[in-house]
Deep mutational scan, measured.
Amino acid sequence: EFTQISGYVNAFGSQRGSVLTVKVENDEGWTLVEEDFDRADYGSDPEFVAEVSSYLKRNGGIKDLTKVL
């Protein structure tokens, strides 16, 4: 089950073990991109978060400006 990723309007994530599946949706709710990120592939949590965040930004993730990150 996908849940909204904090700080984004149209990005959602689903966690299974160490694998986080993220997706970005358009205004109609269609999935634009979907990608798996395995936490085990990264040396640290900040590196993992930075990679996921960068992916979302590159692929149309819209920041939720009503929330302070």
Rank of each mutant, 00 (worst) to 15 (best):
E1L: 11
E1D: 12
E1W: 12
F2Y: 09
F2G: 05
F2L: 06
T3A: 09
T3C: 15
T3M: 12
Q4H: 08
Q4I: 14
Q4P: 12
I5D: 03
S6V: 10
S6T: 09
G7H: 06
G7K: 04
Y8E: 04
Y8L: 05
Y8Q: 05
V9L: 11
V9R: 07
V9D: 04
N10T: 05
N10K: 03
A11H: 00
A11C: 15
A11D: 02
A11Q: 01
A11R: 00
A11I: 03
A11Y: 03
F12H: 04
F12T: 04
G13K: 11
G13Q: 13
S14I: 13
S14K: 14
S14T: 09
S14R: 14
S14E: 05
Q15T: 11
R16P: 03
G17Q: 02
G17F: 04
G17P: 01
G17E: 04
S18G: 07
S18N: 09
V19E: 01
L20S: 01
L20K: 01
L20F: 09
T21R: 08
T21V: 07
T21G: 01
V22H: 01
V22M: 01
V22K: 00
K23V: 08
K23A: 02
K23T: 07
K23S: 06
V24M: 02
V24F: 05
V24I: 13
V24K: 00
E25G: 05
E25P: 01
E25D: 05
E25S: 14
N26I: 06
N26W: 06
D27E: 11
D27T: 10
D27H: 12
E28K: 12
E28G: 08
G29M: 02
G29H: 05
G29I: 02
W30I: 14
W30M: 14
W30S: 11
T31W: 05
T31A: 09
T31S: 06
L32E: 06
L32W: 07
L32I: 12
L32A: 05
L32Q: 06
E34V: 13
E34H: 09
E35W: 13
E35K: 15
E35G: 08
E35R: 15
E35V: 14
D36W: 09
F37E: 00
F37L: 03
F37Q: 01
F37A: 00
F37G: 01
D38F: 03
D38I: 02
D38N: 10
D38Y: 02
R39F: 04
R39S: 03
A40W: 07
A40C: 15
A40S: 09
D41Q: 09
D41S: 09
Y42S: 00
G43W: 06
G43M: 12
G43F: 07
G43I: 08
S44D: 06
S44R: 01
D45W: 15
D45I: 08
D45Y: 14
D45L: 12
P46M: 15
P46H: 12
P46K: 13
P46W: 14
P46F: 13
P46D: 14
E47L: 07
F48V: 01
F48W: 07
F48A: 01
F48T: 00
F48Y: 06
V49A: 11
V49N: 10
V49S: 09
A50Y: 09
A50G: 07
A50M: 11
A50F: 09
E51V: 13
E51P: 00
V52D: 01
V52T: 01
V52N: 01
V52C: 06
V52M: 03
S53T: 13
S53C: 15
S54M: 10
S54N: 13
Y55H: 02
L56Y: 00
L56M: 02
K57L: 11
K57W: 08
K57I: 10
R58S: 09
N59M: 08
N59S: 06
N59E: 05
G60C: 08
G61E: 02
I62K: 09
K63Q: 12
K63C: 15
K63Y: 13
K63M: 13
K63D: 07
D64V: 07
D64K: 04
D64P: 04
L65W: 12
L65H: 12
T66K: 09
T66I: 10
T66N: 15
K67M: 15
K67T: 14
L69I: 15
L69C: 15
